[in-house]
Every structure is written in C-alpha cells, then in structure tokens.
Nucleic acid binder design. Structure first.
Lengths: 204, 204
DNA sequence: ATGAATATTGGACCGATGGACAAGCCGGGA
DNA sequence: TCCCGGCTTGTCCATCGGTCCAATATTCAT
C-alpha cells in the first residue's frame, strides 16, 4: 500500500525522482488502471496522448496524481488539475522540490509552479463574473449540506468521492442524497444532474 | 522570525488555531502592515472589509497567507487566491486540518477545501477553451448502436429502459455502453452525460 | 475466402446505489 | 429545560451498474 509509481510511455526513469523516492517503481500507462490502488502516489509523465484521461481515472481511484512535464505551460497545468491531478511539476525538478511536492500533495494540497500559479488563479478569477451561481433555483429548497452533496454528485462524483471531499462518511452522503431526491422529486443521480443542467441553461 | 500571526478585526482568537499553534499571536488588521515579516505565517480572517488588499500586501512581503472564513464559498476562495493567499479554509476547522494547511502552504503548496477546489480549477479550465473534441467528434468515434445507447443513457434512462427502447437485451446495452465508456475515456454514465452536456453547451 | 469490425446475447462477479429502519449529537427556539 | 430540525452514522437488503470471459451471426474489405 501507499506505493510510489512512475507512469511513463517512453522514459524509463527519472534519476532525481529515484533519489527522492527510492521505492518508486515504473509502470506503463496501460498497466496503471489495474496496478494503482487507493492512496498510491503517482508521478505521471505527459508523454502519453491520453494522459489526462489516465489522470482522471487514477484520481477517481483516490490515488494522488502529480503530472510531470518536460515543457510546463499554463494550458497543460490546467488540464492536469482539471483531470484530478494534485500537482504539476517540471519532470527534471531537483529531488528536494519533488519531496516538497509529495509532502504538499499528500496533505490535500495542490502544487503548481509559482510562475504558473498566478496565471491559473488569475484566469479563474477573471472568468468568474459571468456564470457564478447557476443551479440555485431548486437547490434553495435544500439545506446547506444537502446542497453540497447534491452539487458534488451532480459533478459526477461517486458517493465515496463526495464523502471524502466533504469529510463525512459515505453513509451520510447517502442520507443527504436521499433527502435531495425526495425534495426535488427525482429518482436517482442521473435525473438530478439532468435537472440541474436544464436549469443551468435556463439561467445562462 | 517565522512568527505565526492571527489577523482579525472582531474575533479575539480561535481556540483550535491556538491548540494547533501555541505560539500564535493575534494582531489587528491595521497593525499587520508593520508587524509582518518575510516568512511569517498569517491566518487572515475575512471580517475586515479590505482583507483582499491586506492579503495582497502581506503576500508581497513574502508572508504565507491563509485566509480564514466563517462561510467559505467559491467566489471568496478565488478572491483569496487572487490576492496572493496560499490557502483558504474554514475558520472553525479542526486543529489537525489547520496543521495540515500550514504544512502544505509552508511548502509552496496551495490549500483549498476539497469541495471548492474542483470548482476553482474547473472554472479556470473551461475559460481557457482547452477542449478539442466536439460532440460530433466524440460521438463519431462510436458505432451507430453505441451512439444510440449512449444517447438513451445520457437522457437519464436506466439500462433496462434503454434496452426496452432499442428492443434489445439489457445485457447488450451493457456491452455497447462498455464500449462507449472505453472509447470516450469515461468511467461511468455520469461522466458520459457530463461530457455530452459540456460539449453541447459549447456548440450552442 | 479469410480476417476484422460490428451487433447480439449469455453468465458470473462485485462494487455502487438507493431505500428502510434506527439512533446519537448539537444548536436554537419556545 | 424540553423540543425540533439539521447533521451524522449504523445495519440490512434489493437492485442497478460495470467488467470479464465467452460465444454466435453478419457485413465489409483485402
């Protein structure tokens, strides 16, 4: 458990990664889906065409994904974070920095190179003006926690993932979700997301 | 050096912050500009009207700023990060969590509550126009039957309902659906409907 | 004709989901 | 102080959803 894995298509290894984490093992992208376990720390190279999908899949399995690029840039950083990665770093960073990244990401933190961070945040900030509160129409009938659960689920998260994000048990997520279904008159999570999507487009 | 400071207008102290950091001292917002030094760790309450400006000033002095709010929300989180804060957290978080936040932010990391993180990153990403694949594009990768099943499921039907509609077995629906998931790189029907919804709004 | 892709179905397996029934904790109001 | 609504967790259980291993038939291209 808690394995440290280096996922890359072409590159066999990264010396500084090994010096920072002697236990690191290298696996192929297509091996990743079956070899990765919850809590594993994944260093994912961007040398595979489908690395965002792979990142999303690994993140969904509650692995801690850090994307490594040989040519870091803003767009790729955002893609990585959107794909569930907890970090985005230059592949040839010093081992001390890699250790720092691991420390941060292992504690619910996000690590992005300082020069990219400001851009990421800036972009997010400037784009917030338009579509801030979309689906609060029917959500107003819900309590705060029910709303939080509903939104998490409507974003495609599983009950387990929603539980982890809200720091409650899966059982509590089910309780809130059941209340949401009852109040909104929908039968399951699919109907919920469709309902919210429909209202979202009405506002927009 | 490396002082831990709690900056708040009204609130005298936060018990859990003290238990996490016994050395923390409380100062007023107007004292902050002169008392803060490089490397200091600042816990900044949002109970002052000009807290974003204050955060920016402290960040410019290379202090590590974590914004604390009694009612965390997406807009405020973005405001905090845009103002140079390294973290944004609920003011009444457990002391263990506060310790984690300090650990992350002290190591170049960014800390945002899990439920807000996805939104912040998501907003940033969608504003960049990072999508390449249009709806026809992704659906064209599917066969005719796969597309029919995908659409039925994306409209909220269960496998059983989709089977009845297409006059095939539920088992066959599962088979096609599995192929759809594999080709589109999604893990389940929720991700599918979200994918199609996202692409749909771009076309519209 | 032979192989590749597609469509269909079966069985089995197991995790995810939603409901039913119960119950403890906490904060605010009567 | 007592009550109530919201938040939290538990167990049990039926169903749904997704995947793996096959199998058969059809079409199309080489």
């Amino acid at each position: 458990m808690m394995a440290v894995l280096f996922v890359s298509q072409r590159r066999a290894e990264i010396p500084r990664l090994h010096s920072a984490f002697p236990d690191v093992r290298r696996i192929n992208p297509d091996q990743a889906r079956v070899m990765v376990d919850s809590g594993d720390r994944i260093w994912l190279m961007t040398d595979h065409p489908d690395w965002p999908a792979l990142s999303g899949m690994l993140a969904a399995q509650e692995a801690i994904v850090v994307v490594m690029s040989l040519a870091p840039n803003e767009a790729e950083a955002l893609k990585a974070l959107q794909a569930g990665a907890r970090g985005y770093v230059h592949a040839l960073s010093p081992s001390e920095l890699l250790g720092q990244v691991a420390l941060v990401t292992s504690n619910q933190g996000v690590w992005v190179p300082a020069e990219l961070l400001s851009k990421v945040v800036g972009v997010a900030f400037t784009s917030l003006g338009g579509h801030e509160s979309l689906p609060q129409e029917s959500l107003s009938a819900l309590t705060e926690r029910e709303r939080a659960v509903a939104l998490a689920v409507a974003e495609g998260r599983t009950n387990k993932e929603a539980a982890r994000q809200l720091d409650i048990t899966e059982r509590t997520v089910k309780a809130h979700l059941g209340a949401v279904f009852r109040k909104l008159g929908v039968r399951d999570r699919m109907q919920l997301v469709l309902r919210l999507a429909k209202q979202g487009e009405k506002v927009a």
